[in-house]
C-alpha cells in the first residue's frame, strides 16, 4: 500500500498536452505512469488520447506509444506482446489505453479475442461515457438518460456492463477504478502488472466537456459517482469478486448518497424527470444487491 506522497515525481504525461482543462482521463494517465514507470509500451486507438498527445513532430507522452486503428487496440497489443516474447524481452508492460467507444463498441471484438487468447497485457478503458473525441456522441457506455449529440433528449438504454463482460472471459484480473481514488487505481495497476495473462481495468473518467459541468468538479464528480454507488470500485481476481474501499463500506443503502446528488451536477442529465431519477436509483440499488451477493463469496 503506497501513499500519495510516495508516488514518484517523474512525469511521463508532459505539461502542455492537448487535453481539455479539467480532463479526467489525463489524471488517470498520469497515475498510470506513476504506477508502472517508464518500461511501458502504450497502444492507443482513436480516442481523446490521440489528441492529448499533441501533433507531430511532438508528443506529450514519454513512453513508446503506438497509435492504432479504432477497433484494434487489443490486436496491436497482441502483436507487440508476441514480438516481445519472441525477442525474450522481459520487464516491459504492454498497455492498451482506449476510450469507451473504442472498448465497449468498435473495439470489443479484438479485446474479446485477445482476452480469450490469454494475451499478457493490461487493457484499460478510460470511460467518459461517450465518443468524446468526436464531440460527445452516444456509446454503449453512455448511461441511461444522458444527453449526447446523438441522444439529444437523453439515451433510452442502459450502460453496457463491460467489466462483467470481461470477467466472463475468465481472465485473471478485472477491476474498476476512478482517478478520484488515485491510490486505489495505482494499487490495481501494480497488482495487474504482476499477473500473467489479460488484465482489464475499467476507469470511470469524468469529462467536463461532455458531461456539462464546470472543470473544477472532475474529481468531485468521480467521488460522487462512487459515493452514490453508481460506480463501484471492485476487483474480480481469478473469478473472486471483492469490493474495494470506499465502495466496500457502501453495501448498506443507508451509507450511499442518493444518485440525484451526482446527476444534478451535470448538464447532460438536465432532462431527467423525477421518474427517471427514481428508475436510476432503483437500478443502482439492484446492482448493489448483486454486489452484496458476489462479495459474500459468490464466484462470478
Amino acid at each position: 500500500m503506497v501513499t500519495i506522497k510516495e508516488l514518484p515525481q517523474e512525469e511521463y504525461l508532459l505539461k502542455g498536452h492537448a487535453a481539455c482543462a479539467g480532463c479526467g482521463p489525463s489524471i488517470a494517465l498520469r497515475l498510470l505512469f506513476k504506477a508502472l514507470g517508464k518500461n511501458v509500451i502504450l497502444v492507443v486507438p482513436a480516442c481523446c488520447t490521440s489528441i492529448i498527445q499533441g501533433p507531430y513532430p511532438y508528443t506529450s507522452i514519454g513512453v513508446p506509444l503506438q497509435n492504432i486503428l479504432f477497433e484494434s487496440t487489443a490486436a496491436a497489443a497482441s502483436g507487440i506482446v508476441a514480438a516481445l516474447q519472441q525477442k525474450k524481452l522481459e520487464g516491459v508492460t504492454v498497455v492498451g489505453w482506449a476510450g469507451d467507444g473504442g472498448t465497449v463498441d468498435i473495439g470489443i471484438q479484438a479485446l474479446s479475442g485477445a482476452a480469450e487468447r490469454e494475451t499478457d497485457f493490461i487493457y484499460i478503458c478510460y470511460d467518459n461515457e461517450a465518443y468524446g473525441n468526436t464531440g460527445m456522441q452516444r456509446s454503449g457506455a453512455t448511461p441511461y438518460g444522458a444527453w449526447t449529440t446523438t441522444t439529444p433528449t437523453g439515451k433510452r438504454e442502459r450502460k453496457k456492463n463491460m467489466p462483467f463482460i470481461m470477467a466472463a472471459h475468465r481472465i485473471p484480473y478485472v477491476a474498476t477504478a476512478c482517478p478520484s481514488y488515485p491510490i486505489d487505481f495505482v494499487n490495481k495497476l501494480k497488482k495487474a502488472k504482476e499477473i500473467r495473462g489479460t488484465k482489464y481495468i475499467h476507469i470511470l473518467a469524468p469529462c467536463p466537456t461532455g458531461w456539462r459541468y464546470t472543470t473544477e468538479k472532475t474529481v468531485e464528480l468521480g467521488k460522487l459517482a462512487v459515493q452514490t454507488g453508481l460506480w463501484a470500485l471492485y476487483e474480480i481476481e481469478y473469478g473472486k469478486f471483492k469490493l474495494n474501499s470506499p465502495s466496500d463500506r457502501l453495501v448498506d443503502k443507508a451509507k450511499r448518497k442518493p444518485v440525484k446528488e451526482y446527476l444534478a451536477l451535470q448538464g447532460r442529465f438536465r432532462n431527467l424527470t423525477e421518474e427517471d431519477i427514481a428508475k436510476i436509483q432503483k437500478w443502482v440499488d439492484e446492482d448493489w444487491e448483486r454486489y452484496r451477493k458476489l462479495a459474500s463469496n459468490y464466484l462470478l
Partner: peptide
Amino acid sequence: IRVESEHSAMVACIGAAAAG
C-alpha cells in the same frame, strides 16, 4: 497468434513489426 479476424491479423502484424 490465432486472431479473431483478418482485421486483427493485419493489426497484429503491425504491432509485431513495430516491436521489431
